[in-house]
Every structure is written in structure tokens, then in C-alpha cells.
Design a protein around this nucleic acid. Structure first.
Lengths: 214, 214
DNA sequence: TTATGGGCATAACGCTGTTATGACGCCGTT
DNA sequence: AACGGCGTCATAACAGCGTTATGCCCATAA
């Protein structure tokens, strides 16, 4: 085994990935080009192809690292005595990541065309894996008697996934404006989700307030 | 006034728009290029700029026509004696449009980068206008005693919007797979939405079944 | 010491959106 | 009837894009 994976020297691959993430975050997907990246790190276009095979390949690697950061955020939500609150916290973390890295988020879940980049089955698997955290939380809600005992965690987690994704995307696109903003919609959605799953409306509202507060 | 808006002769503008919609639908946003379009209709690249100002301008016009077709679909959902069923029907029509024209739908709601195209405030206004249909339905649900009398239609319609958008986008990206598919998630989401809004679980389930059936 | 192979620069290919220029034909006006 | 203006469009060009063939350099392994 060579030193391929050990980034001891400031290697070009690392520099390209960081610059790509920076440009993506600061100027959006349209500003991302191979020539711009290699110029910024003082390399030639070949660097992109020796390290990533293609521009979509580089985007894929940026996305994979984004998934890693997403998991890091999700992982620190610990269990406690209120599983509904934890479910809410997971959703808050979800929205916070989508707001912090909207372009990476968009690539992760298919919301960005990005000049030929397409999600692979492996990419989707990595995304779906993230659902185990809220699914476990939902199961513990049912076990704790907050949700109906026959609550179907597999179905409910998909519903919640769609709700969180839709809110993140529409908020980023500027569609959640006017009387109610993204935070209002998030709070309402989570309360209604818990209530429909069987939780007591008052307790649900309290857990949502507590979980969104931080 | 000249004949600018009357498409009596098979004019280039119309041909370009139709070809663009066709390419977008059949091969995706990456396949859409000015040179390809003008070659298909036997014109030069200038045609794009005389008629649309730029490629993003052309995409914008394709999107506007898509909004028109969306409104046509939504408009035929008539009122009856079950407002919950009508709300469900509106959501079914929403999902059907997103499935029939996924690329146009993605452009409409910011889910596609499309090489420099960005939503304008006017575009968003046109999208938000579509929400008056479900908002009215929600108000009639409350008036009919199905939803709580203090149900906030402005908040609920945003929640529903986010849920429908998230489901449409994730389904298109291939993320709603496994035990439950998009139709299952849609049915569950709509039932839970109605229940959380105050509807009786049995009546909600019946209205969802009826509204999704057609 | 030599051979192997990864990283990279150069230069080129065909593609993209965009534009300056100039020509054509239609239309309302004088 | 002749004119001017305007909308439409073809040609050709520019810069930038992703991608690749070629060959050099240099570190490591034999």
C-alpha cells in the first residue's frame, strides 16, 4: 500500500476538493469548472482526471464528503428520555445542514443537474442509510407509547424524509416566504407528524418546542 | 399591434419551444443546447437570441408554459361535497404533473441548475399563485367541520406544499424505493395531514382512498 | 543502476453560450 | 410609389467548457 490515502503533503487532490467545495458554496454550481479549480490550486486540467476521472467524479467526491459531514452532525444527537424530542432534533439538524451547505445538499438528493452528474445506486444507498437515525427514533417513540404501537416506522420515515427534503429545497429556492417562514413550517410539520402518529397534541407541541430550541 | 403573438405561420419561436420541451422531457436538461435546437428547426443560433434573449430566457419560457399546463390540470378539479377528497385530488394532480413532466417541474420549483438559469421573483409569484387552489380547499375543509375551525390555511398549505414537493423530487431522484413506493408515501402523508388538521381518521382514510382513485 | 509507474504540463479536439455584423423582407408612412 | 424602420435571421467569430493523447519528470522497487 502506498501513501495514496494519507494526505501527509498538501496534495493536489485535497486542494481541489476544498476549492471545489468553496466555489460551490460561495458561487453555486454554475461557477464550478475544471479550469477554474486547477488554476486556483496552480495545477493543470489533467489533475482533475488523474484524481477523479472526470468532473462529475469530482462532484461525486465532494458529495460523499458532504454525506460524511451530515452523518457527523446527525451522530451527535443523543438519546434521552423524550424520543419525540430526539426525532425533532434530528429534523432540526437536517434542516441546519441543508441551510449550511445548500449546494452540497442539493447534489446529495438529486436537486442539482450539475452538467452531467448523476446519482449512482451507491450514492442513493449512502443517502438512504441516513434514514436509520430517524427510523430508530420513530421506533422508540412507539415503544415509549408516544406513537401508536402499530406505527409503521418504514412508512413514516419516508413521509418524514419527503417533508424535510421538500421544506429544505423550497426554502432554498425562496418559495417559503410571506406570513410563515421555514421555521414556522418546520415546527408545524413536526407537530402534525407526531400528532398524526398518535402523540398527544400538547406533549407533541412541547417536544417540538424543546427539540427545536436546541 | 403586429402579428407577434398570433402563431399563424409555423414560426420559429413556437418550433424552438416545442423542440426544447421535447428534448428536455426525453433526454434531460444536459441535452438542451442552443445549437441543437436551432439545427432541429432549421435556423441559426441567432433565433434563440432574437426570440428569448438567451438560453436561460428560453428555459424560462418553457417553464412558464409548464406552469400553464399545471394550472390547466389543477383547474379541472371541481368542488363537491367532500372537500378533503378535493384536497387529495389536487395533490394527486400535483404528483401526476411532476411525474409527467419531471424536468419542467424541477425548473419550476428550483430543483434544476440548468446552466445559469435562476428563478426570478415573478417566477416564484407564479408558483405561489398555484397554492390558492389547495388553500381554498383547506378553508372549505375547516368550514365543513372536517378540519379544526381554527386551522390556519396559510400555514397548512405551506406544510402541504413542502410535503408534495419533497415527495415529487425524491421520487424522481429514485430515493423512494423499497418496501413503500411514492404512492404509499403519498397516501400516508395525505391521511396524516388530514388527521393532524382535525379530521376523523376513518373519514380521512376514506377521502384519501376516494381522492387518489381518480 | 535500471525499470516501473503515478503525477502532471502542454496542446489540441469538439462542444457550449453569446454577439457583432450585415442582409433580407415586410410594414406603415409620407 | 418610394421611403424608412424594424423584426428576423445567416454568417462568422470569441471565449470558455470538458476531455484526452502525448510525453516529461521523479520517486520508488528491483
Amino acid at each position: 500500500m502506498s501513501t495514496a490515502n494519507t494526505p501527509n503533503p498538501p496534495n493536489t487532490r485535497r486542494l481541489l476538493l476544498d476549492e471545489a467545495a468553496r466555489v460551490l458554496a460561495e458561487e453555486g454550481p454554475a461557477a464550478l469548472s475544471a479550469r477554474r479549480l486547477v488554476k486556483a490550486v496552480g495545477a493543470s486540467t489533467m489533475a482533475v482526471y488523474t484524481h477523479f476521472g472526470s468532473m462529475p467524479g469530482l462532484v461525486r467526491e465532494v458529495m460523499r464528503e458532504g454525506i460524511g459531514r451530515f452523518e457527523d452532525r446527525v451522530g451527535v444527537v443523543g438519546e434521552g428520555d423524550d424520543p419525540v424530542r430526539e426525532l425533532v432534533e434530528l429534523c432540526r439538524v437536517y434542516q441546519e445542514f441543508a441551510r449550511a451547505e445548500p449546494e452540497v445538499y442539493a447534489v446529495m438528493f438529486g436537486g442539482s443537474a450539475m452538467a452531467g452528474f448523476e446519482l449512482t445506486e451507491d450514492d442513493r444507498q449512502m443517502g438512504v442509510r441516513l434514514l436509520r437515525y430517524p427510523r430508530n427514533a420513530i421506533r422508540r417513540c412507539a415503544a415509549a407509547g408516544r406513537f401508536r404501537s402499530d406505527a409503521d416506522a418504514d412508512l413514516l420515515v419516508r413521509q418524514l424524509f419527503a417533508q424535510m427534503h421538500g421544506l429544505a429545497q423550497l426554502a432554498h429556492a425562496g418559495y417559503i416566504i410571506g406570513v410563515y417562514g421555514p421555521d414556522d413550517v418546520l415546527a408545524g410539520t413536526l407537530r402534525d407528524f407526531a400528532v398524526a402518529a398518535g402523540d398527544d397534541p400538547e406533549r407533541a407541541a412541547a417536544s417540538v418546542r424543546s427539540g427545536l430550541a436546541g
